[in-house]
Design a protein around this nucleic acid. Structure first.
Length: 296
DNA sequence: AATGAGCGA
């Protein structure tokens, strides 16, 4: 390998100040083109170029480098070890050289934090997980699907498509209820007709399940994709909820952005209002207040 | 900005 000053100039990109340094005419076009040979199986790469030297003579410059060696030197010890592993999996049957990247056809099952049919993390003490809110001010971004705060919007939830089916109302058997006990016998877990389930316990009268205008809380500024199960999920932490309703535009089928939640107990409704009014939910800040009775 | 659907005897 031979190098001279002019060849250095040519192998690197020309610098501004070096242009026409030796005021020789630029006759490079007369020279044979640059040749690159290899790298061969030993990693040897040859570059052959022709230049004019300072005396105006044509010179041949051959540069030889060992590519493979250099690349190998950059591998970590661990990577070198992996190179020597025996092939496994689908690769065993492949007749390829030592460097092999396989596209795996193996089926990989992802763990899903909330697979369908899995019990959703059960309700904590009323208001528990919301206790830190409200006081310190509104916290925006609470994902309705996975419940993560401040991480992503509902629409961006990684588990969006795995969201549990919407639930209905809480209808647990009222074990302490004299009527239910009498009707169903003393057996625990026995079927209790809807008319005798919890939620009706507080009120005298028969109409409870269809209409409970008691302790009605109006929720406005809902995002339009908030639905009744979402509201229930949010409000049930304060106590038994007898009804949730989200106003839907009958023509378009889209939410009108407000709804109602009825609580069995007035105190629970009150605490819900105190905690959730001004609460950031799905990118909007909720308004939660007592509802004025509906007119007929 | 905003106060609910249905409902048949």
């Amino acid at each position: 390998m031979s190098l001279d000053k002019s060849s250095l100039n040519q192998t690197k990109p020309l610098r501004w100040g070096e242009l026409d340094e030796d005021d020789g005419e630029d006759l490079d076009f007369l020279l044979p083109p640059k040749q690159v040979i290899g790298p061969d199986e030993n990693g040897i790469k040859k570059v052959i170029e022709y230049k004019f030297n300072d005396d105006g003579n044509k010179v041949k410059i051959t540069t030889t480098t060992r590519v493979r060696k250099l690349a190998k030197a950059r591998l970590s010890k661990r990577a070198m070890e992996r190179r020597n592993w025996a092939k496994f999996g689908d690769a065993v049957h492949e007749d390829v050289g030592s460097r092999l990247t396989m596209v795996s056809t193996e089926e990989i099952l992802l763990e899903r934090p909330r697979a369908p049919g899995t019990k959703v993390e059960e309700t904590k003490m009323p208001g528990d997980n919301l206790a830190q809110l409200g006081k310190a001010g509104a916290v925006l971004m609470v994902c309705r699907t996975c419940g993560k705060k401040g991480d992503h919007w509902t629409s961006r939830c990684p588990y969006k498509d795995l969201a549990p089916q919407p639930e209905g109302f809480i209808d647990k058997p009222a074990a302490a209820e004299p009527v239910a006990t009498a009707a169903a016998g003393a057996t625990k877990g026995a079927y209790v007709p809807p008319s005798m389930r919890a939620g009706a316990e507080r009120t005298v009268g028969s109409d409870m399940r269809r209409r409970n205008e008691e302790n009605s809380v109006r929720v406005t500024n809902l995002s339009e994709d908030t639905r009744e199960p979402d509201l229930l999920e949010l409000f049930r932490t304060f106590g038994p909820v007898s009804r949730v309703y989200v106003a839907i535009d009958q023509k378009t089928g889209v939410s009108r952005g407000f709804g109602f939640v009825n609580f069995v107990n007035k105190e629970d409704a009150e605490r819900a209002i105190n905690k959730l009014n001004g609460y950031g939910y799905d990118n909007l800040i909720l308004r939660v207040e007592w509802a004025t009775p509906r007119s007929n």
